[in-house]
Structure formats: C-alpha cells, structure tokens
Amino acid sequence: HSLRVHINGKDFEVHNADEHVIRALEELIRRGADADELKEFLERWKG
C-alpha cells in the first residue's frame, strides 16, 4: 500500500506500508499522538 500522511503542513509518503505499519499509525492517531510523534514513527519505520 501507499499511504500519504499530512503532518504539520508536510506530506509524508509511506510506500509499501504493510498492514502492521498502517494499524500502528492509526493507533497513534487514535491515541491523539502529536505531529512530532507521528513523524518520529514514520522516520523510524523508513529506517
């Protein structure tokens, strides 16, 4: 899957995101994670 996440006016393109990554991202958003947390998660995932 390809996923586009809009954080703090920046678009993050997440390519080849598997279900696990997408679910983790949705969980963060549901918990009310702020932009920094989401960005950190995506950067860690992209490795």
Rank of each mutant, 00 (worst) to 15 (best):
R44M: 12
F12E: 01
F12S: 00
H6C: 05
W45L: 14
E37W: 05
V14W: 03
H1M: 03
E19T: 07
E13R: 02
E26S: 08
A17T: 06
V14F: 11
E43V: 07
L38A: 03
G47W: 03
H15D: 06
F41L: 07
K46I: 14
D11E: 13
D34F: 05
K39A: 14
E27T: 07
E40F: 07
E19C: 13
H1R: 15
S2N: 15
A17K: 04
E37L: 09
N16W: 05
L42V: 12
I7K: 00
L42K: 01
V5E: 01
L28G: 01
N16H: 10
I22Q: 02
N16F: 10
D18F: 04
E13K: 02
R44E: 10
E37G: 08
D36F: 06
H15R: 08
N8H: 05
R44A: 12
G47S: 13
E27M: 07
H15A: 06
E37P: 01
F41P: 00
A33T: 09
E43M: 07
R4N: 15
H15I: 11
L25F: 06
N8A: 07
L25A: 02
R31A: 11
L28V: 04
D11R: 06
L28S: 02
D11A: 07
R31L: 13
D18V: 04
H6N: 13
E13W: 14
K46F: 13
K10D: 04
G9D: 02
H1G: 15
K46Q: 14
I22K: 04
F41D: 01
R4W: 02
K10I: 10
F41W: 14
L38Y: 03
A24E: 11
R4D: 14
F41K: 02
G32Q: 07
L25K: 00
R31S: 11
D18K: 05
A24M: 12
E19Y: 09
D34H: 10
G47H: 12
H6L: 05
L38I: 08
R4A: 15
I29C: 04
R4I: 15
K10W: 05
L3A: 13
E43D: 12
R30N: 11
F12H: 02
E19G: 06
E40R: 11
E37R: 08
R31T: 13
I22P: 01
D34N: 12
E43Q: 09
V5N: 00
V14R: 00
R31W: 08
E13D: 04
L38W: 05
A17M: 06
A24N: 08
S2G: 15
K39D: 08
V21E: 04
D18W: 02
E26M: 13
R30L: 12
R23E: 10
R23F: 06
I7A: 02
H6G: 02
V14Y: 04
K10M: 09
K10Q: 13
